[in-house]
Design a protein around this nucleic acid. Sequence first.
DNA 1: CCATTAACCGACTGGAGTGTCGGTTACGAG
DNA 2: CTCGTAACCGACACTCCAGTCGGTTAATGG
Lengths: 208, 208
Amino acid sequence: MATSEPKKRMPGTARRARIIEAALDVFAARGYHATAMEEIASAAGVTRSVLYDHFPSKRVLLITVLQEQNAGLVAHVGARITGSGSPGRRLRATLDAYFSFAQDRPAARRLLFDHTDEDDPEIKAVRWGIREARTRSVAVMLGRDLRRLGLDPDSEVAQAVVELLISGTDGLAQWWERHPSVPRDRLVEAAMLVLWNGLSTLPEPEAH
Amino acid sequence: MATSEPKKRMPGTARRARIIEAALDVFAARGYHATAMEEIASAAGVTRSVLYDHFPSKRVLLITVLQEQNAGLVAHVGARITGSGSPGRRLRATLDAYFSFAQDRPAARRLLFDHTDEDDPEIKAVRWGIREARTRSVAVMLGRDLRRLGLDPDSEVAQAVVELLISGTDGLAQWWERHPSVPRDRLVEAAMLVLWNGLSTLPEPEAH
DNA sequence: CCATTAACCGACTGGAGTGTCGGTTACGAG
DNA sequence: CTCGTAACCGACACTCCAGTCGGTTAATGG
C-alpha cells in the first residue's frame, strides 16, 4: 500500500511482473484450488480480465510462477556456493544459502516445496521436473561424500538419502517460519548437528 | 470391485466406515478442494445425499478422517515400539514402524503429512494440533539422545531438530512411493545412515 | 403379516469461479 | 494536435459443486 500506487496505466511488462508477484503470494498462501483469479487481480491492482490479457489460464499462470521462482532459487543458491572447500564446509554453505532464500522469499519457498493439491497432470509434470532436477544437482554436489559412505551417487539408495536431506532441510525451514526469532546461524548449526554428525555423537569425548 | 458388492442396504455404522475409507482415498489423491463429494459418494457405493446423513459437511468429514487416521498411525507405531533398548535400536525401530505404516496405508500417510492447501481455519487448527502432538512425542522419545547432544529437549533448537527428523523421514517415505521395489530394510538403513551416523562418517574404520 | 424405522435417492437452490467479448480511454509516436 | 495502439474494464455465459428436502423402500421387531 505504502509503495507507489499512482493508480495509472502501466507498461505491459511491468504489469505482468506485478501479476506474477501477486500470484506468487496468493498461491503460496491459499493453494491452487482455493485461489480465485479475483484475489490475484486485486492484489495486482487490476481487474480479472487483465490477467487473461497476459496469461491464457490460471494453470499457465501458476506454471509460469513456478518456473520463475525456481530459477530464482537456483540463482540464489548457486551464487553463494563455492565449488571448493572441505565437504563439511560445502554442506554448511549450501544449508545457509537455502535458509537465506527461505528468509528472503518465504512465499517462493512455500510454493516450491510445500505439497499442494494440484491434480492437473500438466502442473504435476512441471513440479516433478523441478524436483527431479533439484535432487539430481544435490546428489552431484554430494557425490564425493556419498561415495565415502559406500554409496554410488547414481544408485537408488543414494537418491533416497538425498531426498531425506532435502525434505529434512525444508522441514526445518518450515518450522522456522513459525519461530522466526531464531537466528539463521542456529538453524544451520542444528541441521549440521543431525545431518553431518548424526544423532549418535558416538564414543567421542566431547570436542567442546 | 472384486470385493463383495451385494448392492444392498447396509447398517449405518458399516456405511459410515465405508464412507470414511472412500473419503480417505479421494482426499489423499486429489486434495481437499479438488475433491467433490460426488467422488467420495460413488467410491462408497452410494449417493451424495447419504454422505450428509452421516456428516454435516465436507469439512467435518475431512476432520473426522484426519483424526481417525492419526489415531491409526499412533496405534500402529506405538504397538511396535519397545520403550527400552539402546538409543540406536529405538530409533531404528521407530523408523521401521513408520515405514511399515507408510507401506500398509499409503493414503493415510499422504493425507496426514502431505497437503497444506486447506485454508479453512478449523481444519488448520486440527492439523496443527496433530502435528504438534507428534513432534512432542518424538521429542520425548529422543529425550536422552538430545540431552547427550547438549540440547534441552524442551528448547527451541531441540524442537527444530525433531522437526528435521520427521520431515526427512517422511520425505524418504514419499520417495519410496515412487520407488516401491526397494525393500523396507534398505530404507531404514539409509535413514539410519544419515540420521544416526551423519554424513561425515568421521575417521572411523568401518564397523562392518 | 404388518408397521415402524432408518437407509437411501433425485431433484432443486444458491453461490462461486473461470474464461470470453466488445467497448472505452490513456498515452506515446508521428 | 491527432490518431492508433494497447492497457484496461464490466458484464455475461457456462460449469461445477455444497448442502437441503421430501419422498421411497428395504429391513426388522412384534
